[in-house]
Amino acid sequence: DTINITLPDGKTLTLTVTPEFTVKELAEEIARRLGLSPEDIKDTHNGKTLDPSLTLAEYGITPGSTITLEIK
């Protein structure tokens, strides 16, 4: 299953994830792909900052969802 990550420059990154991924694991994968530190990444969905300890499923993030990435 894939989700879309909207980057600060407007580009989109597509990642393969499972509903059990935590937001922290997602940030780590994004950081790895972009050459950043996971601590520099802030993920938001529907205007809410995502708690790193919760899973994508707990936020109702499903395949095809879009998450907005902010760099701290």
Rank of each mutant, 00 (worst) to 15 (best):
D51M: 04
D9Q: 05
H45E: 07
T18S: 07
G47H: 07
T68Y: 14
G64W: 00
K11H: 13
D9V: 02
T22A: 01
T18I: 04
G64S: 02
N4D: 08
A27F: 15
S37L: 10
H45P: 05
I30D: 00
E28T: 08
G64F: 01
T16K: 12
E20A: 11
P8K: 09
A27Q: 12
D51I: 06
G10L: 04
T16I: 12
R33L: 12
P52H: 12
P38C: 15
T2V: 10
Y59P: 01
P19T: 04
N4L: 09
L34R: 02
K72Y: 13
T12F: 10
D51P: 05
L34N: 01
Y59E: 08
K24Y: 08
L69P: 01
K48I: 13
T66H: 06
Y59W: 08
P8V: 08
I67D: 00
L69A: 05
P38A: 11
F21I: 09
E28A: 10
T18V: 05
E39Q: 14
G60W: 02
A31V: 06
P52E: 10
T49W: 14
T55R: 06
I3R: 02
S37K: 12
T49C: 13
T49R: 11
T22N: 01
K11D: 10
T66Q: 04
L56P: 00
P8Q: 10
T14I: 12
D40K: 10
K48V: 11
K24M: 09
L69I: 15
I67M: 03
L13D: 02
P38D: 05
S65P: 00
T68V: 14
T18R: 07
G35L: 04
I30A: 02
D51W: 05
L50C: 14
P19F: 05
E39W: 04
I71N: 05
K24T: 04
S37N: 13
S53D: 09
T2I: 10
I30R: 00
G47E: 06
P38G: 06
L54I: 08
D43N: 15
K42G: 13
T18G: 09
I67A: 01
I30N: 00
E20P: 02
V17W: 15
N4G: 06
P38V: 15
I67W: 03
K24R: 14
E28N: 08
I67P: 00
F21W: 14
T44I: 13
L69G: 00
S37H: 14
L34D: 00
I3Q: 03
R32C: 10
L13A: 04
T16Y: 12
P38M: 12
E58Q: 06
V17H: 03
E20G: 07
D9N: 13
E29Y: 08
I67Q: 01
N46G: 10
R33M: 13
I3A: 01
L54S: 11
A31N: 04
T2A: 08
K48S: 09
T14F: 08
I3N: 04
P8Y: 05
T68A: 13
A31Q: 06
T62D: 06
G35E: 05
D43G: 15
E20L: 10
A27I: 15
T49I: 12
P52N: 12
E29N: 05
L69W: 03
T49H: 12
K48T: 11
R33E: 08
D51G: 03
S53N: 13
T2W: 14
L36G: 07
I67L: 08
K11Y: 13
I71W: 09
E58C: 06
T55C: 03
I41P: 02
G35S: 05
L26I: 03
L36E: 04
E39D: 11
D43C: 15
L34V: 07
T22Q: 01
T44R: 12
T12M: 11
I30V: 11
T66W: 06
L36K: 09
E29G: 04
I3L: 08
I61H: 01
L13Q: 03
K48C: 12
P52Q: 14
L56R: 00
L69F: 03
K48W: 05
I41L: 13
T14N: 07
G47C: 13
K42Q: 13
E70W: 04
L34E: 02
P8N: 09
L54K: 15
K48M: 13
S37Q: 12
I30L: 11
K42R: 13
T14Y: 08
E70Y: 04
E70T: 07
E70I: 11
T14L: 10
I41M: 07
T6G: 07
L36F: 10
S53R: 11
L34G: 01
S53H: 10
L56N: 00
L15H: 01
K11G: 13
D9Y: 07
I71Q: 05
L50K: 03
L15M: 09
T68I: 14
T66V: 08
G35D: 07
I41G: 02
N46A: 08
K72C: 14
P52L: 13
E58P: 00
H45A: 13
K11M: 11
S65V: 10
V23W: 15
E70R: 04
R32I: 07
L15D: 00
T16N: 12
K11R: 12
T2F: 13
V17G: 00
V17K: 00
D1K: 06
